[in-house]
Nucleic acid binder design. Sequence first.
DNA 1: CTGAAAGCGCTTACAG
DNA 2: CTGAAAGCGCTTACAG
Lengths: 334, 334
Amino acid sequence: MKSNVTLADVAAGAGVSIATASRALSGKPRVSREMVDRVRAVATELGYRVDPIARALRDGSSRLVGMIVPVIGIPFFSQLIDAVEEELGRAGFELLLADSHGFVDEEVRRLRVLGDRRVDGILIIASDRTASMPSIVNLPDDIAVVAVDRATDKPISDFVGVDNELGIELIFEHLAEQGVTRVGFAGTDDATTNGVERWQSFHRLARRHGMEVGATFRGEFSLESGVAAADHIVDAGPLPDAIVSGSDQIAVGVISRLRERGLDVPKDVLVTGFDGGELSRVYWPTLTTVVQPTSSIAADAVSLLMGRMAGGTSAYRRNRLAPELQLGGSTSRA
Amino acid sequence: MKSNVTLADVAAGAGVSIATASRALSGKPRVSREMVDRVRAVATELGYRVDPIARALRDGSSRLVGMIVPVIGIPFFSQLIDAVEEELGRAGFELLLADSHGFVDEEVRRLRVLGDRRVDGILIIASDRTASMPSIVNLPDDIAVVAVDRATDKPISDFVGVDNELGIELIFEHLAEQGVTRVGFAGTDDATTNGVERWQSFHRLARRHGMEVGATFRGEFSLESGVAAADHIVDAGPLPDAIVSGSDQIAVGVISRLRERGLDVPKDVLVTGFDGGELSRVYWPTLTTVVQPTSSIAADAVSLLMGRMAGGTSAYRRNRLAPELQLGGSTSRA
DNA sequence: CTGAAAGCGCTTACAG
DNA sequence: CTGAAAGCGCTTACAG
């Protein structure tokens, strides 16, 4: 089968110029009603569909949105990609997906390729809150950008993500109710704003609740980091009452490792997560965790991007969406 | 910043025609050595990069590969997407990702859009082994297609996926060693070849090992289906010695539900999975499961696609890659 | 309201 | 070995 029906074919079929055919099809004002109908009918009959490539070359707009994520396969990210793809489809855009593997130089390369592709906009989960900035700033002016999930140090684009402070606050309120007085931390380093904010919120809230801070560990958003954190915290001396983790994956790593070392969750120590993905609900014990409003984040991100693409020039926004607390077996003393 | 360096700029800078500039840059034969060097130098200096849109319009080739999956967010699929994106990047292609949500009509629409985009090739995880065929067959002749993970009823394209029969065989050999004599099944319906093959292999191997087939349940590749399967199998009467599941997610659903109903895995019944994703390693108990060779599947799929794109016209291949068995706590009687 | 023409940036026969 | 020109399929000023 060949999809070779061109605008010229439609024009010929309707007995008009391709200029008129183009205007009729795209709903431009200065065309007569009957002309529009006639052209439309022929187009439908012939199965004509506008060539996005030709249109992109002419208009400079591709109706393509690029998205760069650190790792496609991480559950929280794939969940976000899923939601973004859905929103984009609704708005008539296609998704060009790229993986930076968490490396700034790969990110730079990918960003450049997306720029060359004339994407109308880019959604980026920055690999580093500082080092990722230059390549974002250097993007062509006509490409809209929205940072998702992870913000940059300085406001160089719109941003949508979860309210980390609130998330950690929900965790602490719950832990306080459980009678926790000594907390450990298994989070991530300063490479991302999520790492920084969850870490700072942890300390701020421990203080506010009058809790003592025990051993802390900062690595990456991975299971392995959770395992390392558990080792570090156990080796550091007396176990805290609870370990606050920077993600569900970390929490699961922590719990698995504790179990291997003969410690039980929640009997010996409570553990909390962050993200609220499927893992948190199927794991044993289920996790008490902060549930990210993934769909809302995706919807907001796409909507901000559309606004920028439409030429919006308001001040950069930093939208922090409220998460919810999910209670699970990992903190239930019962 | 503006990325407006065009071939004309390079040509002007080097003092040659754009035709020569084009040939020099693309390494075409009939250009003098020094010309090539001069043009290349100017191009580098100016930061010139070929415009993929213009090239695509001219050549009909976009260096874009489309991929359609039923659900981006399902772990096994996102893992596959991850691997595919990696392979594609290595080959100099970008990934246009689309989600069919498992509906044939959405799939048809997405397929059409990808065709319009002039993607050079398409990787598809078909939503239905029968109903997905027409839209694949109707793709423009110049778009290469490779089916991944799920085959179609008839060979209408190359295919790469796991060897289901072998996977189930590995499971049965292990179960036989565990002294299992009565097996239940928690799998999926006939919509996919994986559903069909795992179901048929299950029966074939139960017979071969002289095992009795107990209650069986066929739903979807989801946790919820696992939950429903557990209920069905428990309600059906005496528990089998083992329940063979069609995916890790199903297995986890089965185990969770059994636990809710006061039954222990592996003490009361053994349970096996299929896929071998992270979930199988972090769940408690860890799963005995069939580990898919995900990276190899992705590499093979991309390689077959490249072959087709290069004009290969050999007979359609059906590549079945060997999986491995992973032993876990879900079948350890110890 | 409609048409002829330019032009988006490239590649490749066609001449020389 | 190099250049002038056509053409990929569209949209949009510019005329009429």
